[in-house]
Computed example of a mutant assay.
Amino acid sequence: MKVQVRKINEKDQEQLIIECVEVTKEVEEIKSFVLSKGTTLTGILEERIFTFPLSAVYYFEAVDERVFAYTKNHSYEMKVRLYQVEDLYKEHHFIRCGKSFVINLLKLQSISPALNGRFTAHMKNGEKIIVSRQYVPSLKKAVLGGTF
């Protein structure tokens, strides 16, 4: 595979072109990574407002009417609802896996069966998230079907 970088003069002319024989899982991951790199979120941590890249988020969690974005080292309070997160970032490989969780499939290490038809999502940062029964089929399809 060749990689080529060319300098241009205008910001609005920037683009990334992927030329491939077949659109594989790896190509889709590259596309999603590039798209999420340009997406910046704003969150609150210790009464201060921070910006951080969407690609740094492992998962979002809703707790008591509040939504938090979890990165490797911090959890930021967001001013959005969980259903909005799910809708906004589904093209960036975020998927609902429970009433209170939306996870980043690119930060998912593995999944394993749990009790009562549920699964456990093992994230690359060591966190374990329970996947509700109703979301298991869509998570399996995303992981096994290669949609991420």
Rank of each mutant, 00 (worst) to 15 (best):
K2W: 04
V3I: 14
Q4K: 14
V5T: 04
I8S: 05
D12R: 09
D12E: 14
L16H: 09
I17P: 01
I18C: 06
I18Y: 09
E19I: 05
V21D: 15
E22I: 07
K25S: 02
E26N: 04
E26K: 12
E26L: 07
V27M: 10
V27L: 04
E28C: 05
I30T: 14
S32R: 15
L35I: 02
K37T: 00
T39W: 04
L45Q: 08
L45P: 02
R48H: 10
F50T: 00
F52V: 01
A56I: 00
A56T: 03
V57S: 08
F60N: 00
F60A: 01
F60P: 02
E65S: 14
V67T: 13
V67C: 06
K72G: 14
K72T: 04
H74V: 01
H74G: 00
R81C: 06
R81I: 02
L82T: 05
Y83K: 11
Y83S: 09
E86S: 10
H92G: 00
I95P: 06
C97T: 15
G98F: 13
S100T: 15
S100Y: 07
V102L: 12
I103Q: 07
L105F: 13
S112Q: 15
L115G: 03
T120K: 13
K124M: 13
N125H: 10
I130C: 07
S132V: 02
L139P: 08
K140D: 01
K140C: 02
A142W: 09
V143G: 06
G146K: 13
